[in-house]
Structures are given as C-alpha cells and as structure tokens.
Amino acid sequence: MAVMNMVDALNSALDNELERDPRVVVLGEDVGRDGGVFRVTQSLLKKYGELRVVDTPLAESAIVGASLGMSLNGLKPVAEVQFDGFTYATFDQLFSHVARMRTRTRGRFTAPLVVRFPYGGLVRALEHHSESPEAFFCHFPGLKVVAPSSPYEAKGLLIAAIRDPDPVIFMEPKRLYRAIKEDVPETPYIIPLGEARVVQEGSDVTIVSYGSMLQSCLEAVKLVAGAASCEVIDLRTLTPWDERTVIDSVGKTGRLVIVHEAPRNCGLGGEIAATIQQKCFYKLSAPIARVTSWDIITPLPKMETRHFPSVSRIAKAIIETATLQ
C-alpha cells in the first residue's frame, strides 16, 4: 500500500499493465518525454522505451484510428486524448470504426483499446477544457464508458478497462486528480466494469452519481444529514451501468436523485430516470430529480460555479425529493 492521489494511482495502473503485458502500448500527445500534461504517464517512457510509450504528433483522430489498427494486430493500446474538448475530433474513428468493428466482422476482429482523457470543470480552465461528454459515448452502441471517483477506484477500473475485450472510454475527473489521497495497493487489482458501488447506505433517498460529482454529493449528504438518510451510489461504469444496484436501492428508499456534471438535455440522468420509473414505478414516492449543469455552452471560469451543480444545489434537490409527501 502507498498513499496516492488519482494521478499516482493511474500512473501505477499503467506501470503495472505495461510491465505485466508486453502488448500494452501507451500513446498520445506529450505522454512520453513530458510525462503527460497532468503527469499521469510520468517516468513510463524511461522505463518502457519510446516504442511502447509513444509521443505522437498532434492528431487526435489519428491517435484513436491508429490505436484501432494496433488493437487489430495484437497490441493493447491505451491512448490519451489531452482534454475532454479534444475528444470531439475522435468521434468519427470511435463511432464509425472502433465501436462497430466486432459487429461488422462478426467477431473476427475486435478493438480491445482504451481511450483515456481528463474531463469536467471547476478547475478554472480555458475554453474546451471543462467538458463532460459522456452522453455521446454512452449513446453509441459498442463502447464501454467508465468514470472513476477516487484514486483507489481509478486504478482498479483502469486495469479492468485495459484487460477488457471491448473498447473502453475512460473519463478521468481532472478536478479530483490531486484533490484526494488514499491508500492504494502498488500491485495490480481489478474493479470489475459494470458494477456500481454503494458508498454509503441510507433509507430515505437514493443518490446516484459518478466521477467528479461524487465528492460533491457526499458533501451535500453531510449537509442534509439531520433531515434525510441518504444512500449514495457511485455508478463507476456508465455503459453498461449497473441497473440492479440502483433498482435495489430505489426499491428500498422509493426516491432518487441523479447528479451529473454534464448538461441535462439527453444526459445520462434521463436514461437512468426512465429506466427506474419503468422498473420501480410502484415503489416510487416522489418524482425522480436530476441535478445537472444547465443546457448551455460551458461558460468561462468566472461563471462556471453558477453553471455546474454546486453542493447546495444538490442538497436542495435531496431535501425536496426526500421530504415530498
């Protein structure tokens, strides 16, 4: 065990997998000599050499397209896209090819690759550096989508993603990169994809969140502790998401608040709410609430705290949902 922040934990996961499996390759912009702009790939170049830790030219579409080719021919690429807002350039490769390779070739070719990128706001970043694009990836069949919420979670989920036979979009909440430290094993371990985690048990209301917003939810839960007993679920994997765990929880509480950083319109919250109202209809005691950012272009940093869900916005929604008669 060692005390790690999320950057350390992700670095440790990559280090473990590069060491364990000679087919694993890390590629992206500035991932080698510079160690990644957030230092997630620090020291890997020195340890594994430039053929396995590849500083690519600046070209997101080619990074993902080439990763697909690598995966088709025996490698396990872990590609980094430098920021959330630059993943849009990868959509054609991801949606037209990566996601459908298994289907198109009836299983003859598959795409066991990972695309990692930092996502989310509230770090006073420049334009295009504070996006939460998970809904795009979740909407498209064939991609798995993961968003960890702590250092321990990040390492176990990334290793699972690298070993997964399907393409995985791995969204790292940049706000939490250095915000939390906790004990993380230096040896490899796996947190299985598709399994949510009940972070805290409770009886009045279920709160479902993931990634960057989980910490805000836990703070909000503390704020309302006297008024509502909250069950907090960290979804971890956004596709395929763990319906069973959420259904069981809402079956118990009868109330649900979904919190995410992405805008509301066609966000993941809508999908979860629709599923739960269908499968838990007779157990629900209140309308399902969604706490999200607004349906606007991400504002520049001076106004970002008015845009993204704040702890008080979450707390208010919890109280309203928990107390509605």
Partner: peptide, 10 residues
C-alpha cells in the same frame, strides 16, 4: 507542439 519538437512532428 507543447513538448514535441518540430523534427518529431514531421
């Protein structure tokens, strides 16, 4: 290009 020198870009 951030850390990537010109001769490594092309």
């Amino acid at each position: 290009a951030i850390s990537l020198p010109r001769e490594r870009q092309s």
